[in-house]
Every structure is written in structure tokens, then in C-alpha cells.
Write a protein that binds this DNA or RNA. Structure first.
Length: 1055
RNA sequence: GGGCGAUUAGCUCAGUUGGUUAGAGCGCCACGUUUACACCGUGGAUGUCGACGGUUCGAGUCCGCCAUCGCCCA
């Protein structure tokens, strides 16, 4: 819409689409979003939590980014040099998995068909696509990011930071190569972090196998029974363990059970008692043999491991639980975390990996099992054990529900797998990040989230950083292995390198200068094989060629996505070597002011940013972290694309507009609550809404129950389904915001229609009407409250304050009251000046939440009133984006005026109430009187004209001597009585009935109060002022009751 | 199993340090198209503040326990 439209031609409904289309490009073209370091101004910076390029943004992102933009816009108006750094995350596993899945679905191709570069190219295409979509979504939302500084976690600037960080940590010995048990995804053939694993119960079995004892002595058991849910892993067993002191272990288990029995509710007691009985049985039946086995283990007894021809030791370890199973436990270090831990305590037993990366059995098992999948191998092992007579399917197998780990990405079961991995030592790094929060340098809001952060870091678990993927930052290490004690080319070893890093080794194949750019680690942990790892500081073709020529191979793994995300606040600002456009940015903007994110990545991301920032820059990355609520659907479940309950912010914006989306989200952002949002489909045929249910949210199409037509959903795949028009997914929870925006639009429209002939000028205090002073007083308070609330991330408070003020005070009272004056030649000028000023301030306060509408009105206001303000008229800013943030003027705050106004509002309400109660049509004029103290009458006097315009009521008399007309309806307020003359109108019976109900109600309150005041405890112990207040209020409502009774009596007489 | 949060009107949510008669929006009922706005106006009805116990003169608010739901970690 053009701003040339005359105000009376403006549409009655706010056209959000037109405003968005017009003002976003306007802001962008003028460079309002761009920030450059400016030494004379204070910086304010936020880095965006980079959205994954896996897909389009959902409502959670809309919330996250709205909250950031609100702060950014406010701070910009407050005069800070404000930077909102945008970007996107390559999201390693997630993105590669999505692209691979589509590749398979649409082209029946696997990644191996394309090769590394081929796949990476395809993912870049995907990334470009989605990044464009994401940026488009953010722009539509009105986000004022500095787009010229857009970063991607895989771009050159970020890559430089990743490489440097890796190199430094490697040189410091904080990155090391180790064998670790990892969560192996056999489908994607990659390591999956604990955080990418979910547990799900599946039906399985518990098998009991016998292992023969090698030459038992007389009286000793000939076989040992072990139990397992994963029989095939026995092929990798390297020991069987028994508890060092089974008697004590049983006793402890018993003690614990007894304690729980004492505390348990009745319904759990029988079960616990049963367990206690079982311990007793064990003590009798198997304890002697366990003690015997323990002694045998100490003596060095070995067991025959069936199906392998291997002999394995019986060992003593506390992991074996005498209260469970047979009391003995098989040890498979390469395929079970607990067994791995046992191996760490008994390194002599060794570990045998029996799996290939694809989940089939490898060369470490007998030929007949090689190449079998886990499932097939399991069947084979069970059947072979039966053949050997070491397992009886009748008695040795029970059904059991198993809590099985699954990969989040591929949804296939995880295999624990022993693999070579790169790790970061976390002890010192974690501590620095913990200290930053405990000593308050980084403040987490709400505070309760600090606990999770500290607990997680407190574990100081080393961070496995390698991912067997192709999409990501490739680990900058070149490796060479030999079977010999030392490596081919000569090396020179120094005790300490010149910069103080330990164990510097230089390579003779490289020049002295080149050696400065590499760091070397040797590892001879595997028997007979030496591994040499060379880390290269930055991409260097010459070094890489020399390494390659000498038999070095670059790591094929890439880094965990969180490695690059952890650097985000400083990598985006150009650490360590800024390109020209980022010159001085790190120094100026870092540490950033606040990070706004959701709670599920406090550990994975926030904690790691803190420690990496401290490590690399030597300074925290942000002063505050604000954790915002999660958006749930109407059932209280988190939204996700896979569940089908996700809401696309674009749908919401199409229907309600970006302003409504933003205001609605801000209005919902309270400190404690997650946001529950009932979801509806909007039928594209008839426009009616259909509630989303757990059933219909997974259907490819839905038949509208209103018009009977079909529409498609996100699940539509068949061509005929896709051909149906798509039903938007929206939520009625944005209606409040949409209505509010429309209210603002129309209030603005009214103001604009009444500003012709506007003449800017100072307004003296004595020129102000009561309603002017009242509005200015309220406006000052609201300005203060909104600024404070936003400073403290209390978005909902800010939104509610503005909503109530704008609707109930500005629109319902001020605009209504000023109408008369605007028609009047004398009053018009001051009214216009105050109205223009008030609208100006209100728009500025609302701009961070409602950017488009406020800009649209601002521009129109600027045409009619280019200079405005009641103190000293000043030219308005070209754009509301660059206008100054309103300041609270304490001189305008006037409690007396506000009290006076409150009286007026009460009386007005009473008059309206009587009219409605008596069914007097709005157009029928009525007359009324008010009996009250003289001072109240004086306060009310100037308001007399407004009773007629706002309630159609003519005031007859105000004061102590005012009397009730013969036939009147009354309202009794504290110390005020209102009488409406209803001669010829009144329904006496109805009025008496209504008054009786009122009297009853008041009598009830009186009874409650009298009871309270007759309570000696209250009178004696409560503070005197509270008691006095109770007494006063009792007296007041007693008077009120008397007044009401009088009215009833008089009405009775009259009828 | 451990931690965190929630439970207030039919629905979605506010409710500051305990202190008059617990609020809002939507929905519902009645009236109303008064030249900013029916995405509106005026008025109205609707609550054992999840259960039980405790502290207190006084509890939606503080403490304990239980139930239900959700999230995080194991």
C-alpha cells in the first residue's frame, strides 16, 4: 500500500502482506541492519543460533528469532551499535542423512555410488536451497540481521577457526587418539554421540549358556553359567568375572532392599519381599559355589570359550553381581560399556572386536560366522551352542523386554563398538566453563538451568569429536602406520618445542619453515605398530603433497558438528585471522551481550561455546544466556516434522501476518511455562478450521468436515494427493495478536484522519485536559515498565503491558474522549498535538514486537505531522527503526490525576451497568446524579461532558446533597452513590431483585470480615495496619449495604 | 533411577515479597451496526486455585508427601 493514500481511504483491516512487502526492502536498502565497529558508540551484539540446513524453519525457530529481533530492535533504537550476526549450521549427520535418504528414495543411489566429492556436492546444493529458504523465512518475519555478515559453519571464515582450534588443541596435547567404545550406527556407518541415541524397549530374550571349566579340581564346578541378551557377542568374550566377595555383596544388596521395603508404598512391598526371599535363596544355594569360583579365579583358572577354540580367564571383578543371574558375567570389552570398564581394570584380558563397520561379523571370528549380520549370527550361535550341549532351549531361554539403544538419525539399533577415535580432553576446559558460570561472568536466565549446565560439565567426560561422515570439516591430521618400531623417514625429537609445547617432533621431509606449521604425535600403543599423526595448521598444498608422497594419509573422518558450533561467537567475528570485512569486529563486539536459545542444547552447545571462547579468545562468548520456552502442540507434545504436528511460520504469517506472529509469540513467552498451542488445519476450500488430532495429523489428505472437499497435508506423496490444494497448519492462538494489530491499525487510522491541519508546538501544562495528563502519566509508567521488562527478558510482561495500555486506555478511553475536542476549533490544536505525540511514543514502544505495522503508521504520521512532541517539537526520524527509544519522564507521572481518572471510570462503568441492567437502549438518553463528598465531586466535575459521549448519560447533580429521583436505579460504590433517573423506563421489580442479590453478596463479605475481626489471634498477631485496614473496609462495606437497603426500600415505596 | 518444570474458569494462560471480594484473551449469554475498528462496543455468567497433610492470625502464593503430565540426564 502506498503512503500517499489519504487517511480516509485506508482499509479498515490492516493489510499485513502489503506492509511487509513494502517495508522490509526499505529497511534493507537503507542499510539499517548493517553494523560496523564505531568507537564512539557502545556495541550490542547477538549471534544467531544457526539453524540447521536440514529443513525449513518451524515455529520454535520463529520464537527464538522473534525474541532476538525484539531485543536487537530495541537496542538499536536505544543508540547502541547493534549487530545481529546471522548464519546457518551444516549439521553434519542430520543433513547428510536427509540427503542420503532422498537420494535413495528418488534416485536409488547410495553415497558410495556418488563418491565423497559427489555426495558433498549434492549436499551443497541442498544446503544452498535450504539456506535460501531459511533466510527468506527470517526476512519475512522481519528479522533485522546484518545479512552482509551471513556465515555458514562450513564457509572459509569458519573453517579457518576450526582448523586453528584443532591445531592448537592438538599441539597442547588436548586432542588425542584413543580406542573407545562408541555408539556405532551400522546403517549410516558412523559414530553417534550419546545425545543422538534414544532408548526404546523391544521384546527380546535372556539366554543362559554354559562355559566349560578347564581342568577343574575334584569338587569344583565343571561348567559356569552366564546369561546374555546378545548371544553373538560371546564370540568376542575375553573373560568371565565373579565377585571378589559374594557374601558381602549379597549382604549389601539385602540391606538396600530392606531400606527400600521400609519406605515403599504398600503396593510395591510384595515385590520387594520376593526379591529379599530370592537373596536368601541365593545365599543358601549359590553362595558356596560363587566363593569357590572366586578362589578358582584367584588361582588363574581358565574357561573354554565355546565355538571359538579360545581359552579365557576367570577373573575377579565387582561388576559381577551375585544377586543377579548366575552370579557370573561374561566380559566382552569391545561391545559393552560395562565390560569395557572391566577391561580397563584388567588390561591383560584384551579386547576383541568382532564387528565390521556395516554390522556384519569380521575376521576375528571363525569362518562360518564371518559376514553374517548380527541377527543371523545370533541364530547361528544359539543353535551351535545347543548342538554342543551347552544350551537347552527348553530351560535356558526366557522372554524379556530390553531397553535397546537406537540411533536418532537412522532409527536402527546401536551397536557398542570399539573404534579408534579422536578425543578432546575435557578436564581443564570443562572447569573453565564451570567457573565462568559459578562466578557470574556468564549469567544463565532463568537461573535454574545453570544446574544442568554445571552437572554436565562436572562429569568432564572427554569429547569424542570424530564422525565417520563426508559432510563436515575434515580432520586436519595425516597419518602413517608401519609394522616397525620406527617410521621410515628420519625425525628429530626435541624435549620441548620453542613455544613451550611438550614433545615437539620435527619431520625431516619438511623444511624448517614448514615444520613450524605442523605438529606431530607418535603413538605406539598397539603392539608393534607405530602411528604417526601430523596435524597441519592451515591448508598448505606443498606440505600436503610431501606428506602424501611419503605415505601419509589424511583422516577421512570429519569433526562433530558441535566442534564448529562451539566456535560460533568468535569464528563469525573473524577469529583468528579476520578477512578485511571483519577487521576489528572481534575486539569490538566480543563478548556478545546475550545468547538466546532453547534449553535442549545448553550442554551440547552453550557449554562448549563458553569453554572454546575461553580457550581461543581468553574471554567468555556472551554475558547472558536466555533460555526460552518450548512450543508444544495442543496435547503437550513437542512439535516435530516426523510427528506431523509442526507448524510452519509461513502458514501463520500468510493468515495472520508477521506482526501477529511476533506479538503472539512474545505474548506467550513467560518465564516458567512451555507454550501449548492447539493446532488446526485451515481448509483451502471453505477457509474453516479443523482441529488437528493425533489421528489426522499423519494423513496424506483430509476431508473437510464443513464443506466435504479434500485437501493435502505435509504427508502427501502420491501425485493425486499432491494435486490437492494444501491445507495450511495454523493455531487460533494468534488471533489475539491479529485482533490487537487490527485495533492498533484502526486507532492509528482514526488519529491520521484527524490530524489534518496539524500544527506542531509546545503544549504547556495548563493547556492539558485531564485526559491528556492522565494519558501522559500512564504513558510514562508504561514506557518504564516495558523497557524494564525487555531488559530482563520478560517478554510476556512487556507484551501484556502494551496490549492493556493500548487497548483499554489509549483506545477505549483516550481516543473516545478526545473525539469531541477534535471536532472543536478551540480544543483541536492541543488535542492533535497530544494525540500525535502519544501515538508516536506508543508506536516506538511497540516497534520491536510489531515492526511492520508501526513503520507503516510511522511513515503516514510523518507526512501529516513531520515534527511532533509536546515538550519541544522535533522532526521525526526517517524510519521508526532509527527513531530513539522512548524515555520515561517521571515529571509526567501523576498519581493524583490517575486516582481522579479511576473515579471517573468507576462512575462511568456504574452508569453503563445500570443502562444494561435495565435494558435501556443505547440511544435513549438518561439522566443521573452522584452523591459523594465535595472533593470527589470536584474531581468529577471536569469529566461531565464525557458521560454523555461515552454512556449517553446526562449528569444532573454531583455532591453531598444530590438526591435520588423518585424512580431511579442506583449503584453503590465505595463512598459514592450513583442514581440514574429512570422515570418511565424503570422495571421496578427487576431492579429490586437485582439490588437484593447485591445486598446478599455484600452481607456475605461482611460476615466473612466480622468473623476475621472477631478472631482474637488475628487482631493480636497481625500487623496493626492490616487490622486497621480490615476494620476500615468493614465499615465501608457496611455503609454500602445500608445504602443498597435504602435503595430497595425506596423502590418498594415507589412501586 | 536422578534432576527440572507444570497442574488456577469450557480452552490457552497471568497472578510480583503470604494480607480486602483470584484476573486476561478466546468461547458462551444479552444488548448494540454511535463516521477508527464486528479482527468492534457495552454488560453478564462461569473457579473446592490437582489431592492430602503442615507452618501461620491469615496460604493460589511457603514446607512435606502423593497423583498426573512434560522435558533433561542415566
Amino acid at each position: 500500500m502506498s503512503t500517499d493514500t489519504t487517511p480516509s481511504e485506508l482499509p479498515k483491516q490492516y493489510d499485513h502482506a502489503a506492509a511487509q512487502k513494502r517495508w522490509y526492502p526499505y529497511w534493507e536498502e537503507r542499510g539499517f541492519f548493517h553494523s560496523e565497529p564505531d568507537p564512539v558508540r557502545k556495541p550490542y551484539a547477538i549471534v544467531i543460533p544457526p539453524p540447521n540446513v536440514t529443513g525449513a524453519l518451524h515455529l520454535g525457530h520463529a520464537l527464538n528469532n522473534t525474541l532476538q529481533d525484539i531485543l536487537i530492535r530495541m537496542k538499536r533504537m536505544q543508540g547502541f551499535e547493534t549487530l545481529w550476526m546471522p548464519g546457518a549450521d551444516h549439521a553434519g549427520i542430520a543433513t547428510q542423512a536427509v540427503v542420503e535418504r532422498r537420494l535413495l528414495q528418488e534416485e536409488k543411489l547410495s553415497r558410495h555410488d556418488l563418491g565423497r566429492q559427489g555426495l558433498v556436492d549434492r549436499i551443497w546444493e541442498w544446503k544452498n536451497d535450504y539456506q535460501t529458504r531459511i533466510v527468506g523465512q527470517l526476512k519475512r518475519m522481519g528479522c533485522s540481521c546484518d545479512w552482509a555478515r551471513m556465515r555458514f559453519t562450513l564457509d572459509e571464515v569458519c573453517a579457518r577457526a576450526v582448523r586453528e582450534t584443532f591445531f592448537q588443541l592438538f599441539r597442547e596435547g588436548k586432542i588425542y587418539r584413543g580406542k573407545r567404545l562408541v555408539n556405532w550406527d551400522t546403517y549410516l556407518q558412523t559414530t553417534v554421540s550419546d545425545d543422538e541415541v534414544f532408548h526404546e524397549p523391544v521384546k527380546g530374550h535372556f539366554w543362559h549358556f554354559s562355559y566349560p571349566v578347564v581342568s577343574p579340581r575334584p569338587g569344583e564346578p565343571t561348567h559356569i553359567t552366564i546369561a546374555t541378551t546378545r548371544p553373538e557377542t560371546m564370540l568376542g568374550d575375553t573373560a568371565v568375572a565373579v565377585h571378589p566377595d559374594p557374601a558381602i555383596a549379597l549382604k549389601q544388596a539385602e540391606k538396600e532392599l530392606r531400606r527400600r521395603l521400609d519406605e515403599a508404598p504398600a503396593k510395591e512391598k510384595p515385590d520387594l519381599q520376593k526379591q529379599l526371599d530370592e537373596i536368601e535363596r541365593r545365599r543358601r544355594d549359590i553362595l558356596p559355589s560363587l566363593e569357590k569360583l572366586r578362589d578358582m579365579a584367584r588361582r588363574g583358572t581358565k574357561l573354554e570359550l565355546p565355538l571359538t577354540g579360545r581359552k579365557i580367564p576367570l577373573i575377579v571383578d565387582e561388576w559381577a553381581k551375585p544377586e543377579l543371574g548366575s552370579g557370573c558375567v561374561k566380559i566382552t570389552p569391545a561391545h559393552d560399556q560395562n565390560d569395557y570398564d572391566v577391561w580397563q581394570r584388567h588390561t591383560e584380558i584384551g579386547a576383541i572386536n568382532i564387528l565390521n563397520p556395516d554390522g556384519t561379523l569380521n575376521e576375528n571370528v571363525r569362518e562360518k560366522y564371518r559376514g553374517l549380520t548380527v541377527k543371523k549370527a545370533r541364530e547361528a550361535v544359539v543353535s551351535d551352542m545347543e548342538q554342543e550341549g551347552l544350551y537347552n532351549p527348553e530351560t535356558d531361554c526366557e522372554d524379556r523386554e530390553i531397553d535397546l539403544a537406537h540411533s536418532d538419525r537412522s532409527k536402527t539399533p546401536i551397536e557398542p563398538y570399539l573404534a579408534d577415535q579422536w578425543f578432546i580432553k575435557m578436564d581443564e576446559l570443562s572447569q573453565t566453563a564451570m567457573d565462568a558460570v559459578t562466578d557470574g561472568r556468564v549469567k544463565i536466565i532463568p537461573e535454574r538451568y545453570a544446574k544442568g549446565y554445571l552437572d554436565w560439565l562436572g562429569e568432564k567426560r572427554d569429547w569424542p569429536i570424530g564422525r565417520q561422515l563426508w559432510w563436515g570439516h575434515r580432520i586436519p591430521v595425516w597419518t602413517k602406520n608401519t609394522g616397525e618400531e620406527h617410521l621410515g623417514e628420519g625425525v628429530q625429537r626435541m624435549n620441548e618445542d620453542s613455544r613451550g609445547y611438550p614433545g615437539k617432533t620435527t619431520l625431516r621431509i619438511l623444511s624448517e619453515k614448514e615444520n613450524e606449521l605442523v605438529h606431530v604425535q607418535d603413538d605406539t600403543s598397539d603392539s608393534g605398530v607405530t602411528h604417526r599423526y601430523v596435524c597441519v595448521q592451515k591448508p598448505d598444498a606443498s606440505i600436503e603433497a610431501k606428506l602424501k608422497d611419503n605415505g601419509y594419509v589424511q583422516e577421512s573422518d570429519v569433526l562433530d558438528t558441535w566442534f564448529s558450533s562451539a566456535l560460533w561467537p568468535h569464528s563469525t567475528l573473524g577469529w583468528p585471522e579476520p578477512p578485511p570485512e571483519l577487521k576489528d569486529c572481534l575486539k569490538y563486539y566480543y563478548p556478545t551481550n546475550v545468547l538466546i536459545t532453547s534449553r535442549d542444547i545448553i550442554t551440547l552447545w552453550v557449554a562448549r561455546m563458553v569453554l572454546m571462547g575461553l580457550h581461543n579468545v581468553g574471554e567468555i562468548p556472551f554475558h547472558e544466556v536466555f533460555i526460552h520456552p518450548k512450543i508444544l502442540d495442543g496435547y503437550g507434545e513437542g512439535m516435530s516434522k516426523s510427528k506431523g504436528n509442526g507448524v510452519d511460520p509461513i502458514d501463520v504469517m500468510d493468515k495472520f501476518g508477521a506482526d501477529s506472529l511476533r506479538f503472539g509469540l512474545a505474548y506467550l513467552t513467560t518465564e516458567t511455562q512451555d507454550v501449548r498451542m492447539p493446532v488446526e488445519f485451515e481448509c483451502p476450500h471453505c477457509g474453516k478450521l479443523i482441529a488437528q488430532t493425533k489421528k489426522n495429523r499423519v494423513l496424506p489428505w483430509i476431508e473437510c468436515k464443513h464443506c466435504g472437499e479434500r485437501f493435502s497435508t505435509q504427508w502427501a506423496e502420491k501425485p493425486e494427493d499432491k494435486a490437492l490444494p494444501r491445507g495450511a497448519v495454523v493455531s487460533e492462538r494468534f488471533e489475539l495478536a491479529r485482533n490487537f494489530c487490527n485495533k492498533l491499525w484502526n486507532a492509528s487510522r482514526f488519529a491520521l484522519m484527524n490530524l489534518d491541519g496539524f500544527d506542531p508546538g509546545r503544549v504547556a501544562d495548563d493547556e492539558l485536559y485531564v485526559e491528556d495528563s492522565w494519558l501522559l502519566s500512564r504513558l510514562a509508567t508504561v514506557t518504564e515498565q516495558v523497557s524494564e521488562a525487555l531488559e530482563q527478558y520478560r517478554y510476556a510482561d512487556a507484551a501484556r503491558t502494551l496490549y492493556d495500555f493500548a487497548w483499554d486506555e489509549f483506545c477505549s478511553f483516550y481516543v473516545e474522549m478526545v473525539k469531541g475536542r477534535l471536532q472543536d476549533d478551540v480544543g483541536r490544536m492541543v488535542a492533535q498535538r497530544v494525540l500525535a505525540h502519544a501515538l508516536d511514543v506508543l508506536l516506538r514502544l511497540l516497534h520491536p514486537m510489531i515492526p511492520f505495522l508501526t513503520e507503516d503508521v510511522w511513515q503516514r504520521l510523518g507526512r501529516l505531522a513531520p515534527e511532533r512532541g509536546i515538550d519541544e517539537p522535533l522532526p521525526a526520524a526517517e524510519s521508526i527503526m532509527t527513531a530513539p527509544w522512548p524515555q520515561c519522564d517521571p515529571m509526567r507521572q501523576d498519581p493524583e490525576i490517575e486516582a481522579q481518572f479511576a473515579r471517573f471510570q468507576e462512575v462511568l462503568r456504574a452508569v453503563r451497568d445500570i443502562r444494561a441492567r435495565q435494558n435501556v437502549p443505547p440511544k435513549t438518553p438518561i439522566r443521573f446524579s452522584v452523591r459523594c463528598e465535595a472533593d470527589v465531586a470536584e474531581l468529577l466535575a471536569p469529566m461531565k461532558p464525557y458521560f454523555s459521549s461515552m454512556a449517553g448519560a446526562e449528569p444532573v447533580e454531583f455532591g453531598p446533597d444530590a438526591t435520588a429521583p423518585a424512580l431511579s436505579a442506583g449503584a453503590t460504590l465505595p463512598n459514592i452513590e450513583v442514581y440514574v433517573d429512570l422515570a418511565g423506563l424503570i422495571d421496578v421489580e427487576a431492579e429490586i431483585a437485582s439490588k437484593r442479590r447485591e445486598a446478599e453478596k455484600i452481607a456475605g463479605f461482611i460476615a466473612a470480615k466480622e468473623k476475621k475481626l472477631s478472631n482474637a489471634g488475628f487482631v493480636e498477631r497481625a500487623p496493626a495496619e492490616v487490622v486497621q485496614k480490615e476494620r476500615d473496609s468493614l465499615k465501608e462495606i457496611q455503609n454500602q449495604l445500608a445504602a443498597v437497603e435504602q435503595v430497595i426500600e425506596r423502590l418498594g415505596d415507589a412501586s
